[in-house]
Nucleic acid binder design. Sequence first.
DNA 1: GTGGTCTAGACCACA
DNA 2: GTGGTCTAGACCACC
Lengths: 132, 132, 132, 132
Amino acid sequence: MIVRIDPKSNIPLYEQIIQQVKEMCVKGILKPDDKLPSVRELSSSIVINPNTVSKAYQELERQGVIVTLRGKGTFVAEHQIQEATEKQVIAMKKELEKIIIECKYLGITIDEMNKWVQEIYREMREQADDRS
Amino acid sequence: MIVRIDPKSNIPLYEQIIQQVKEMCVKGILKPDDKLPSVRELSSSIVINPNTVSKAYQELERQGVIVTLRGKGTFVAEHQIQEATEKQVIAMKKELEKIIIECKYLGITIDEMNKWVQEIYREMREQADDRS
Amino acid sequence: MIVRIDPKSNIPLYEQIIQQVKEMCVKGILKPDDKLPSVRELSSSIVINPNTVSKAYQELERQGVIVTLRGKGTFVAEHQIQEATEKQVIAMKKELEKIIIECKYLGITIDEMNKWVQEIYREMREQADDRS
Amino acid sequence: MIVRIDPKSNIPLYEQIIQQVKEMCVKGILKPDDKLPSVRELSSSIVINPNTVSKAYQELERQGVIVTLRGKGTFVAEHQIQEATEKQVIAMKKELEKIIIECKYLGITIDEMNKWVQEIYREMREQADDRS
DNA sequence: GTGGTCTAGACCACA
DNA sequence: GTGGTCTAGACCACC
């Protein structure tokens, strides 16, 4: 499992890890029951503090993305479809609106954005298929 | 101009102001040359520190959304479509991907997201038309 | 707000803080909008690391017990009645069963336990009334 | 003797075994002088490390729940009602309070909890009667 | 070996 | 002033 961290980003390191793990799960690069690198392994491989990795793993577990088996390690959980709460839906919508407004200012058209969405979705499907 | 701030949100107050001003500009609620409330007016109306409003205005001016004329006040700038740099495009794409992944985990389908995009765009057009 | 920590307990320090804050909220010692001591204040008053207090506060916020206002501090949230999920109900039931079994081994009768429950409940009501 | 282990639980495996054995004793599924499976038998049947089972058995013996007769095997001990020390009583009370507070936050009423207690007690009696 | 917790101390953004 | 993040390094329980 390859994780790429940008220490200059304003996104917290642990958040970057969370996002990448989720991305890999969605894209099928990580499949249920796959073992994640141990806290120490990952922290030394990307040269950050073990605590930071630990925090990321704990949050991922809280979200049900991974499970930790005592003394054995950390594993990708079974995919479970959650039911989004209304709050969460509103939040996502707001996020989307934010992006659209930003794109408008950057002169990016809705057509371009639609193309991106298709791309992203295609990538998710393809990679998932490759591995199944 | 009505600004709604949520002090409990994890989004910085000054960021919330920036977003709302930009949103109003894009939706046509604020038009070029419209006058914005002064820092003191706005800060007292939403009960936050004037420094926070000031910071928001400064950032908005830096982005070319508004202009301040010394002694006259702050006004909405002429809409100028920027040319997005490659970095910015990649950033927006990444943001979009992040949302899509998140929605996937929340059980929100791509169709629903597409509907949202249509909604948001329609809202932007309609309100802009009302005012033109 | 007085917090008592037992560093010898096998319960994590941050957990002890969480429990005590919740207890004080339920008993009415802490009321909505009351300000909690800052991370630094509390950590120095009970002589533990600020990170530990921070972790407790973050978890409390995640649970909706408290809210943090950026740069202002941490406050007791409005009481909101959650809807327990089935999983949570089963977990609580299991916990209760565990205690009952343990009590059985210790020769504690069900009548004694019932008395405890009454006591605990009375304490919660009384203190809440005192403050309202 | 059927033991069900959840490796994903945050409760240590050896603790889960202890709890289940005690539960079965209290419910009358296991009676004094009943033979328990050997460490190897149990460890292979629930697919965990023999050391873990061994640890559980040792702790159960320490608590006087079971006895091991060298060369013969492990057996359920005579039920002996202990005299609870004050420390233990306080600890159980605290545990109970913790649960009640938690339930309060989950919107579970005291009436519901009382029903649970009745249920649990009934189950303990019935199964004990079946076997006597 | 694994993850969980804690300390000591630092820097940063926010208000 | 506030909380949020991160590092460096330690100890512990569990398997």
